[in-house]
Design a protein around this nucleic acid. Structure first.
Lengths: 227, 227
DNA sequence: AAGGTATTAATTGTCGACAATTTAAACTTA
DNA sequence: TAAGTTTAAATTGTCGACAATTAATACCTT
C-alpha cells in the first residue's frame, strides 16, 4: 500500500480554512483597510462558531493583517508610506541574509530548479505583457525559494509567514505592474547567478538593491495616488 | 477628576495573566524543554477554562517558546546550538538595523537616559561581581532601548515580542555569567557613543560584533555542557 | 512472545450560552 | 441646542459540554 509522506499528516482544521479565506479577502482588499472585524458577523458568514474564528484572528494578527485591542476588537490594517518603508527596511536586511545563507546551503539541484522557474516566468511574462498577477506571483515565488533555501527556520517564519502577506497586500492593492516587470526579472537572474557562483556577499548586495528598487517603485505609486 | 493616560487603557485579560506566568516558567526552565503541554492540566493549575489558555498558547507559539501541531498539541521548544545560531543570525541583522535607525531617530534626551542607565548597570555590576541576573536584565534592557529607539514597529515587534523571550531562555538556562559581563558593558558603551555621535554605520558594526561575541560565548557554554 | 488489530481512554477542536466590558442611544440639564 | 449623564444594545472574554481525532490499552493471531 502506498506510503503517505510523514509530514503531510497536518490536519486541516476549520480555523485554517477560515483563516486562509479571510487572509485572501484582506490581501485582495475585499475587506476594506481600517474596517472593523465583527466576530459574530464573520462567524455567521462562514457558518462556524467564534472559537475557530478567534484562532484565525490570532494568526491574522501574527501576520500583521489585523490589529487587535483587548475588549475592543480587531481592525484591518491601513496601508501607508511609513508602513511600507518599515516593512521594506526589514526585508532588505533579512532577505539579504537569506541570500548569503542560500548561497551556502542551496543544493545545485535546487538552484537549477529555480533557474528553470525563472525561465518559465520569462516565457509567461513575454506572452502576457503588463499582466500583473503572474509577475506578482512569480516574484513572490522567487523570493520564497531563496528564503526557504536559507535553511533558517526563524528567518523563514518571519518572512514567509509573518511579513509576506502584508507585502502582497501592498502590491495587490496598489495594482503593481508597469515597466518594472522586465527589470525585476533581470535582477532576479543576477541574484540567482550570484548564488549559483556561491557568492553570498554579492547575492546579498543585489537582493538589497532589488528590494530597495521595488520599494521606490511602490512608493512612487503611493505618492501619485495622492495619499 | 484625574485623567488617565490614553494608551494605558489596555485591559488585562485572564489570557494575559496566564500567558506571562507560563512564559516566565518556560524561560526559567520550570517547565522542561521538550515536555508536552497539557491543556486540561494547565487549565486546572491556573484555575481557568481552556479558552483563555488556548489564547495564551497561541501567543507562546508566536514567541517560539512552544511548538503546536493540529490535533496533537503543544510542546515546549528544545534548545540547540543550531537554534541558537539561527536566532543570533537574525539578531545580528535586525539589531544592526535598529542601531542605524536609533542613531537617526533617538532624541538627545533618550540617549542621555540610556547613558545614565548604563552607568547604573556599571555600579550594580561592580557591587555584585559575577551575579548573572542583573547583567542579564541589564543587557536585555540596553538592547530593548535601542530597538525601541529604532521607531520601526515591525522591528520592535519581531525583536522584543517574538525573539527576545527565546534569547532570554537560552541565557537563563545556560546560566550565563562569568568574565564576559564587564566586556559586554564596554561594548554597550561604545555602541551608545556611536549612536550619540549619530554614526549609525559604526553603531551597526559594533552591535553586530557585540552580538556575535555574545553568541560565541553562549556556544562555548553549550559545548562544554556536552550537549 | 512478537506483531498487528480492535477497543478504550485521553486530548484537541468546536459549539452555544453567559458574564464583563465597551459602544451606541436615550435622556436630562443648563 | 450642546454637553454631560444614564440607560440600553452590541461586542468581546470566558465557561462548560460535546464531537472529532489521537494516543494508549487490551486483545487476538501466528
Amino acid at each position: 500500500m502506498s506510503e503517505v509522506s510523514y509530514n503531510s499528516r497536518l490536519a486541516i482544521t476549520a480555523a485554517d480554512r477560515v483563516l486562509h479565506e479571510i487572509q485572501r479577502a484582506i490581501v485582495a482588499g475585499e475587506i476594506t483597510p481600517g474596517s472593523k472585524i465583527s466576530e459574530p458577523e464573520l462567524a455567521r458568514r462562514f457558518d462556524l462558531s467564534r472559537a475557530p474564528l478567534r484562532e484565525a484572528l490570532a494568526r491574522l494578527e501574527r501576520c500583521h493583517l489585523i490589529e487587535r485591542l483587548p475588549n475592543i476588537g480587531a481592525r484591518v490594517v491601513t496601508l501607508s508610506i511609513a508602513g511600507l518603508s518599515w516593512l521594506y527596511q526589514i526585508r532588505e536586511e533579512l532577505e539579504g541574509l537569506a541570500c548569503r545563507l542560500a548561497a551556502q546551503h542551496m543544493t545545485d539541484q535546487q538552484i537549477n530548479e529555480l533557474c528553470q522557474l525563472l525561465d518559465l516566468h520569462l516565457a509567461t511574462q513575454r506572452v502576457r505583457e503588463g499582466e500583473s498577477y503572474y509577475q506578482e506571483a512569480g516574484d513572490v515565488d522567487f523570493h520564497y525559494r531563496i528564503i526557504q533555501g536559507s535553511n533558517n527556520p526563524y528567518l523563514i517564519n518571519i518572512l514567509c509567514d509573518e511579513l509576506y502577506y502584508l507585502v502582497r497586500m501592498y502590491r495587490v492593492q496598489l495594482g503593481m505592474n508597469g515597466p518594472r516587470v522586465s527589470r525585476a526579472f533581470d535582477e532576479h537572474k543576477a541574484i540567482l547567478t550570484a548564488i549559483a557562483n556561491r557568492d553570498g556577499e554579492l547575492a546579498d548586495l543585489l537582493m538589497r538593491r532589488h528590494i530597495a528598487a521595488s520599494r521606490l517603485n511602490i512608493e512612487k505609486h503611493l505618492h501619485q495616488l495622492g495619499k
